[in-house]
Design a protein around this nucleic acid. Structure first.
Lengths: 256, 256
DNA sequence: GCCGCCATTATTGTCATACTTATTCGACTG
DNA sequence: CAGTCGAATAAGTATGACAATAATGGCGGC
């Protein structure tokens, strides 16, 4: 059969693997990722109509069941909308659920542009600043300890992956301490942003950058421990802005 | 056949109808909403296992195709995860995509609690404050006009629905002017928050509240027109906080 | 000759059933 | 007692037929 025994895996798998998701590898997810990426990358333009079922069926060499489940998944994420006799239309981007982990991953798969990273940093600033402020008001003693511990682990990280993991852990702890379910739900966003940023440039390789990054994160933790919401806000803003600036700077110097 | 020709529609349909979505009514979406609501309402606890396919099949009296597509949709929204030999597990809430319009709608369907509205207001503050600030920096003349026009329409609204529609239009215009795709993508959230808030209490019925609300929104628009990002931030915070406070106050006085 | 209605037809939606694969649990064996 | 192998169970996949829906073009009436 021609199910192409060794279709090259997507680069996005690196991100997925790092974040411990996407363990299963079934046909449906193959089709899903191919189509999802094709749409996000503009291969199928917004507002255009996808090829009809029969054609896609032929293209992917899978059963109708598999194809339709993949399409339903895309529909659930707001990328497409199917209507009888019309076809399956690619929705305009403002209907896409950009906060979905997969949709985000597809964006990163075609080389994250600086402008995209910037947009991401902007929402993160909005959300995480509030999360930090709320955490400062509501954190328990337990949560305070966890935060400090995460910072310590960041400081002693030896590899970029290790650093990224503890950084993520820190931001999740902040979201958790905010006692706002939306903040926790957003961590997919943070995850992507962090892994992307560290794929481009990890502070681990630059001693002074590492010191700096750890210091800022410690400032956030300290402000939360001190129940200073304003302090937490300011420190968080700096942390995100610096992270983005480092990644952006690196990208521009490499890729004029 | 027993496909229960007249299953009572969900109350959430009010919200869906107001927002112009969910036009299609196919079997799949019926099952989806039933299951989605059951999960969100805690009828199937987090971490528990749903009944196996065969049982659900029997319960809903639909084909396997329909059931499985509904489950795939739920999986796409992060509510469940299927594994062979184990069953379909309800994921912990922090894996749910709370920014998904449907997931949000299911939350509102079981009577929005004050704490939930508050969480919603908190993220909105985080996101929309940044959106307003960015809009102030980047708005075009065109967008500035649209903003002002939206405020005028809010001021002259006669019915709660009309007011809500123009209010939403205003917030969308701000997101649009921010030139950040994530901000636009979040409007489902705003939509829900606004329709929910106005279902509880519309300023239209209280003259001084109306004047107040319009004034705050005009302040946001003016700040954006003046390219004052700090002014836009402060005005937006007030707008959201007041909207929440009014709804919360109303709820408590009615429902001790 | 123009307008509106209806049949055609293309496309998604639904159904039923059979078969395949993965994973756990438990028994069996070394 | 530990490791392996097998059976049972649940999801995953395949296939073919039929139903519902809605553009489109042709037909008939005005």
């Amino acid at each position: 059969m021609d199910r192409s025994g060794g279709r090259a895996r997507h680069s996005g798998d690196l991100i997925a693997a790092l974040s411990g998701r996407n363990l299963a590898h079934n046909l449906h997810s193959d089709v899903l990722w191919d189509l999802g990426f094709a749409i996000v990358s503009g291969q199928y333009a917004q507002g255009s109509i996808l090829p009809p079922d029969t054609e896609l069926l032929d293209q992917f060499r899978v059963s109708r069941t598999v194809l339709r489940e993949a399409l339903k998944t895309l529909a659930a994420k707001g990328l497409i909308e199917a209507r009888a006799r019309i076809g399956t239309r690619v929705l305009p981007r403002n209907r896409w659920n950009l906060f979905d982990a997969d949709v985000l991953a597809w964006h990163f798969e075609l080389g994250p542009e600086v402008s995209f990273l910037q947009s991401l940093a902007e929402v993160r600033i909005g959300i995480e600043i509030e999360a930090a402020a709320l955490a400062a008001e509501r954190r328990t003693e337990e949560q305070a300890k966890l935060l400090m511990a995460a910072v310590d682990r960041m400081a002693s990280a030896r590899t970029p992956e290790e650093f990224a993991r503890h950084d993520l852990e820190f931001h999740k702890a902040v979201a958790d301490a905010s006692a706002n379910p939306f903040m926790a739900s957003i961590s997919a966003l943070v995850e992507m942003a962090l892994t992307a940023a560290f794929t481009i440039s990890s502070p681990v390789n630059e001693p002074e950058a590492l010191t700096q990054t750890v210091a800022v994160h410690r400032a956030i933790a300290q402000a939360i421990v001190d129940k200073s919401s304003q302090g937490a806000r300011e420190a968080m803003r700096i942390a995100i802005a610096e992270g983005f600036a480092r990644a952006a700077g690196r990208m521009e110097s490499v890729d004029p």
